[in-house]
Nucleic acid binder design. Sequence first.
DNA 1: TAGATTGTTAATCGATTAACAATC
DNA 2: TAGATTGTTAATCGATTAACAATC
Lengths: 220, 220
Amino acid sequence: MIEINEIRSIPEPTLRRLPLYLYFLKNLANHGILEVSTTKIANEFKQDPTQIRKDLGYLGTLGKPKVGYEVPVLIEAIETFLNWNNTTEAFIVGAGNLGMAMIGYEQFSKYGIKIIAAFDNDSEKIGIHIKDVPVLSISKLTDLIKRMHVHVGIITVPAESAQSAADLLIEGGIKAIWNFAPVNLKVPEDIIIEDAQFATSLAVLSRKLMEINNINLEKV
Amino acid sequence: MIEINEIRSIPEPTLRRLPLYLYFLKNLANHGILEVSTTKIANEFKQDPTQIRKDLGYLGTLGKPKVGYEVPVLIEAIETFLNWNNTTEAFIVGAGNLGMAMIGYEQFSKYGIKIIAAFDNDSEKIGIHIKDVPVLSISKLTDLIKRMHVHVGIITVPAESAQSAADLLIEGGIKAIWNFAPVNLKVPEDIIIEDAQFATSLAVLSRKLMEINNINLEKV
DNA sequence: TAGATTGTTAATCGATTAACAATC
DNA sequence: TAGATTGTTAATCGATTAACAATC
């Protein structure tokens, strides 16, 4: 019989906060601090302690009344929850500035991701290695996805080529796409798309900047 | 008397969707399509037409019953709303892989951002230019922020140096920080922080990937 | 023990969705 | 005109916050 660890559904806002807690906890661990309370975590992030407890509750009942939580236990629980203590192999399409930056980013191992090959159509780049990661011709993409059973594709090509990059990834049999191109990709229902777009984050920044400039005007 | 364009508060989810609409609308414009309805936009993003109408409502009453919206009018409205048709100058701290990628990213002009100088403490990099953007010593950072009245700082240094980079930016008088380091920065109340962290987005991807793997298991 | 903290249920708040009159 | 679409008010849904018993 196959053991099934039930994948509980979790609110997306909670999911997005877990990595932040993880950084903080690792920082505590680095400083030799082995216990923490939701009050302390809430303090760090200027949030409600109840919210932290709710969030951590999704990981299981890990805390002890009066005592709090053991830092290493929480770290382990979050990493397991996100599957970040296993390595997921990924292909990246687009070896331009951003692609190169991603390939060179050692920290991905902390997030359970390992980029094992890059694909580009620039003949100048094909054949070179970036930190042990080979840059291959995009014509080999679908075949290699099949042969290597790669499940995650990262798209760092310009907007114009993003959809065709996605199409190739899907043709090869990829399950999930991490998309950095400013495009709303059209994919089949069963393909996971996660958009990591600068613009979204920048929109919030731009608007807040307008708000404070406006406040300053009013003070004049 | 100073004219005050009132900055209305807007739900953050709406704000994050506006850039997506903007891409789509620009794409329509490029194809010569000059009118659009919320039904069509909703279709593209697999969302509720009512939500699109609510979102667009924050930009003013721009549509015409039966007709829909004029694409150029909507584009203009969103860009104005985000202040993306003005240029905001920014400094970037950290000329590593990611920093270089950001400096080389021409599309920022579409988002109203222009990186005018980079700062690093690596003497090998100081003095070079990346696409007309000079890399300067970090020791000049605070002074140049003051002299050039720069309001936005981008942090692309490693986690360990992120807080000290933020401190320098704030000392110089920066108003907003776009932070790419996996760190919860400690800043005064009046400083705007926008975190654009890979990990947040990756957490969602990782979890969804676990979910489908689980579903596949159950089917066995 | 007394005080602090967890885990959970209930109340509140805000965003999404539904309903519908006004309109071209 | 009839049908489609906007803009807005009301209903629903889900996340955040408050309250509190259980616990070490």
